[in-house]
Design a protein around this nucleic acid. Structure first.
Lengths: 336, 336
DNA sequence: CTGAAAGCGCTTACAG
DNA sequence: CTGAAAGCGCTTACAG
């Protein structure tokens, strides 16, 4: 859709020089007589010339674009975007960090998905949140020599250094500690099924901390009707010894779960304390409000962009603040 | 940073055909014998070949990228991003709508800003939120033949059809009506100074609705220390007849303003009712919570992406839900 | 300091 | 149905 834009040759002709000289003038490479430069710049201004980033990107193999793969939003319908709280904040912060260093941030579809627009490969590096176990995208990026940064570790390759820490074990500790402090003696875990660190490492830590005979783990797929959270509540209440605390990872499940508990006459937090693993509007919008982990999406977005920028431009000195992992927004569902 | 990727010629050589045939196979243009196609695809798979989007973009003048200029976040430091609530949600929704139709969404710097990465021009069309009066970016896009969609109207050119309606007058009416219902008889407007529709059309409507001798308008720049909101509170209280209602556009000003009112012993909402023009976390996070306009950023993001996609691909049949303009999140600052 | 020429990887008339 | 060739707009050795 670009069209009648003028090219480097138009400028060269108008300034009475070669395309090389125009290129040198704008890129700063080579040496150009200041007077000549002035002529070139004048001609460019008159013609409204901008160097074509696509052409130069093709030539130099450097586009000035960072790709961001938001998983599992990919492939989902716009209406289905899960974490309205997490993903947009993450992306916004990553974008601003990138822009501040001369890179645009492009939200791309997972290129390993069928029929994905190939645009995904038109970037200098890719941020992936969140990598899944044995991620085909990671394999493809490695094979293609595409620099990347992962937010959360690929369980199949914990040694990969290009990972931004999401501190899942620490967060799990904080949540279990908090539930314990608020009087929970028997805590159930309601966890998603996407094979991402956030799920798998949470369950692993839970099983390390909770005695085997007291473990209650319910796995509920992320992309189901919200009332599955209600079904989880029913399942927990149907146990011989129901839990008096629940750590529920996703916000829509947590909301539905708490609402069902209340509807069935269970007192929250007196009978059951609940913490959600990801903060969201719906947790604070209606009563009882639900205590949640602040995953610090903006801090993580900055971290991820900075990590990738350091890979792309090693000479860049980038300082970004660390996330305050394990921050809890304490609300009514744990007594305050 | 792309590197040892294989090219169309590698595939052609391996499959024993010409580059033309490979191109035809992947693009669907031209006619290729199915058996030949199979050979080509096999060779491509073995080599891990992906068509290079940059090269094809250069040739076809179509990249599959929609640009998004977030103004006035541009040029601001990452830490300064104003509307953590609005912009990320808008961008997230626009991105998903674009992806669903084969376009990536790229967050770009305002290309009219000095030293902006030229990447901004490497897209098929641009969404601008929010255009400023006499926007140089709009002029540049028109001159360059870049398709665009504006979110909010450029006051200098109200006839431009490529605008997503943000319904500022209607929203102003709803806010003033609400303040009136809650007992405000004398409403002040605290408005930003960026020359965008959101500010200018709000003030215009306010002046249409409020008798001239009762108008109180304070203009406070958007990008100042938050305590300027407190200064606005002081200024209002210093008036001979202080207002009993305030419509304050930005959330950080509104938060500081309300906190100062309370600190000075003014009762909110009994003495002064306050509505904020843009919802944000800080309005609902601490007491007194503040009533706010839900600007429907996600609906607007979808609208904007859809409008631009229709321009880029006229044959596309795109249905996206309309925003529910004028929705208020009613909170303590107007009595509940 | 300046320019002619080759080439980045692809697409597209055009000829066969 | 297939391929040779030109060209998208730029950059970069290289020669002068």
């Amino acid at each position: 859709m670009r069209r009648q834009r003028s090219t480097i040759r138009d400028v060269a002709r108008r300034a009475g020089v070669s395309a090389t000289t125009v290129s040198h003038t704008f890129s700063g490479n080579g040496v150009v007589n200041p007077a000549t430069q002035a002529r070139v710049r004048a001609a460019a201004t008159e013609l409204g010339y901008h160097p074509d980033v696509v052409a130069s990107g093709l030539r130099r193999s450097r586009l000035g674009v960072i790709g961001l793969v938001l998983r599992p939003a990919v492939g989902a319908e716009p209406q289905q975007i899960q974490d309205v709280d997490y993903f947009p904040r993450f992306a916004g912060a990553a974008a601003l960090t990138s822009l501040a260093h001369g890179y645009a941030l492009m939200l791309v579809a997972d290129p390993t998905v069928a029929h994905a627009p190939a645009t995904a490969w038109a970037c200098d590096g890719i941020i992936v949140t969140d990598p899944v176990e044995h991620d085909p995208l990671i394999a493809a990026m490695r094979a293609g020599g595409m620099p990347y940064t992962l937010v959360g570790v690929d369980a199949a390759d914990p040694g990969d250094p290009h990972v931004v820490d999401i501190a899942t074990a620490l967060i799990t500790d904080r949540v279990l500690d908090h539930l314990g402090e608020r009087g929970a003696r028997r805590v159930a875990l309601v966890v998603g099924t996407d094979p991402i660190e956030w799920n798998t490492a949470t369950e692993r830590r839970y099983r390390e901390r909770v005695p085997a005979d007291a473990q209650i783990v319910l796995r509920v797929p992320e992309r189901v009707e919200p009332h599955e959270g209600a079904a989880a509540a029913d399942a927990l209440l149907a146990l011989p010894t129901p839990p008096d605390g629940v750590y529920c990872m996703t916000s829509d499940h947590a909301r539905a779960l708490v609402d069902r508990l209340v509807a069935r006459g269970v007192r929250v937090p007196e009978d059951v304390r609940v913490v959600c693993g990801s903060d969201a509007d719906r947790l604070r919008a209606t009563a009882p409000t639900i205590t949640a982990v602040d995953l610090q999406p903006q801090a993580l977005g900055r971290q991820a962009a900075a990590a990738l920028l350091r890979r792309l431009e090693p000479e860049l000195a980038l300082e970004v603040p660390l996330p305050e992992h394990g921050t809890l927004n304490v609300r009514a569902s744990t007594g305050g």
